[in-house]
Write a protein that binds this DNA or RNA. Structure first.
Lengths: 341, 341
DNA sequence: CTGTTAGCGCATTCAT
DNA sequence: ATGAATGCGCTAACAG
């Protein structure tokens, strides 16, 4: 039969059926000690016969482990974050651990609440993706729960971090545009939320800035606009730029979503991409290769990052020391950029 | 202090500090019985002082409830399913329940395994999104766990279903194209996976068919192609159509992703949208409004569906009887369709 | 209203 | 190697 009844078959039941003590049953089930082959088999048989399923709560209560890993994300539904979640799911797949998701929604209050819920559920480990928790909070959490911080570099806990070198990504994207002959390069960045800039995005901005400085130019503040990371803000950003009147031949958006918005705004104005304006995004979202024309962007290996986060967590729980891990982003060249004529 | 230590403060500790018995503490904490105001306050105070956090496992073990709801999805990362998950998250937000996600990945084996994991974790209720579990399996699950089935109509358990009328969606999309003067309308549908057609998608096809029949025409098999629901398959579908040589003036893809693929293929062939070929998708994904030109599509209220699923589940757990719920999809008209000249 | 007494199902000593 | 005993932290049924 495919699905069983999950009746209240307990370890005692199989103990009786297998004519051994409950402790022995526990031992063979969890392999915590040697057991005579005959008894072992008898137990296995009983387990099979009675379709026994251990009660996780009893296990957890007795052992102190929940076999569960808390995952705190910030934006359920965002392609990049979801990619990481997927990776975590994959990375945990073969293990005995189970992920427990929570969404901070980029709101400090919500995030803190979610964190506490996770902690209340006694997760054995915690993977925090992005977010705005203070370093003190993170440290105090790390003090008694294995912690891994993804997509955010945290100076106070360097060895717990797994992230992408966003500075380099921004630098590469901008440098590529420069090499393609562009000089008046717009950057659409993200605003400061609650006084705190989203670090990732800020790093991309710094990369942009550095590339321009390295070319021997100055950053023109009129070419930098702020969006909200949402598509719509890309539309507005372009409107604003156009209104500003400062000419430009290329746009580097801090994420693909805003690049898509920008694309639409340009379309509405009958400004051709890439003939009139070249466009570069960041993230290499699923849709990026299908934009018309396909979007040049910077890939962050989200799924892989998630997998690494998961396996690093498993190592941690296994007693191994964790290593910081920085991923290098990769420029994906597609047709949305052309050499400036 | 923002984050607490989660030390082993037990109910006994606060009992002592508040000079009452553990049972009384339990009573005030869970409001299961009247308690003298003085004692209640003393308890609250102690809870506050000691930063007490109940141990969920002990609670669950003793009460038999896990305060957790299992959510079985099929494709973490797919926009529609993720929208539902978001809705569930929202719907559960204010409650004391917590969602526990699992991904069946459209693979029967994986799905069954995920189901069991969820059941093993003693979820109090189960929300199954899509999937291919047999009706028997579903029934046997429903026998001892409150169950809600989303995005899939299941004859055997009508009252547990929440889904979208995909037939109507397909019908509307096709009818709209017909009204716009199109006659040679392509449909990109999805293949039969593991011998089982994805019901949703099949319903859309039936809607397409019906609309054509209602117009007094016949369905031309040369105008129907199969994709895999992925973007890339939309590209291939268009290539195939073009190779086939049968003229057409519009394409209705069973989901937006394939529509995006189709769009790209047309772009590569220098076939203009909508001047040469009109295009309609299904799902109204995040990017649909940002396609160039913006995609006409059919909206399924994913987030709302998720919310309804969650609150229906809460009602169920509350003893209320559940009602089946069918959502009507909505045609979203954008610029990817034009009247046929 | 409140304290006492039993478990919930399992892991883990401790003896043997 | 294995059984008996104890406790994880909390809820609930039982007396008062």
């Amino acid at each position: 039969m495919a699905t069983d009844m999950h009746k209240k078959v307990t370890i005692t039941d199989i103990a009786e059926r297998a004519r051994v003590s409950p402790s022995t049953v526990s031992r063979v089930l969890r392999g915590s000690a040697e057991v005579a082959d005959s008894k072992r088999e008898a137990v296995m048989q009983a387990v099979e016969d009675l379709q026994y399923r251990p009660n996780i709560f009893a296990q957890s209560l007795a052992s102190g482990q929940s076999m569960t890993i808390g995952v705190l994300t910030q934006n359920f539904g965002s392609p990049f974050y979801d990619g990481i979640l997927q990776g975590i799911l994959l990375g945990l797949d073969k293990s005995d651990y189970w992920p427990m998701f929570a969404d901070g929604r980029w709101q400090p209050t919500v995030e803190l609440h979610a964190l506490h819920s996770l902690l209340d559920r006694r997760v054995d480990g915690l993977i925090i993706i992005g977010g705005q928790l203070s370093e003190e909070d993170l440290q105090s959490v790390a003090a008694d729960t294995p912690l891994i911080i993804v997509a955010r570099s945290t100076p106070a806990l360097p060895e717990s971090c797994i992230y992408v070198d966003n500075f380099m990504g921004g630098y590469q994207a901008t440098k590529y545009l420069i090499e393609m002959g562009h000089r008046d390069i717009v950057h659409i960045t993200a605003p400061t939320i609650n006084q705190i800039a989203i670090d990732d995005v800020y790093q991309r901005y710094l990369g942009y800035q550095q590339a321009i400085l390295d070319a021997g130019w100055q950053v023109d503040p009129r070419l930098v606009v702020e969006g909200s990371l949402q598509q719509q803000s890309g539309v507005l950003a372009v409107e604003m730029l156009l209104a500003r009147g400062r000419p430009f031949s290329a746009i580097f958006a801090a994420n693909d979503q805003m690049a898509f918005g920008a694309r639409l705004a340009l379309f509405r104005r009958n400004i051709r991409v890439p003939q009139d304006v070249s466009l570069v995004g960041f993230d290499d979202e699923q849709f990026a290769p299908y934009m018309v024309p396909p979007l040049t962007t910077v890939r962050q290996p989200a799924v892989e990052i998630g997998q690494v986060a998961a396996s690093t967590m498993l190592d941690l729980l296994d007693g191994k020391k964790s290593q910081p891990r920085v991923f290098q982003p990769e420029l994906i060249v597609r047709e949305s950029v052309t050499r400036r004529s």
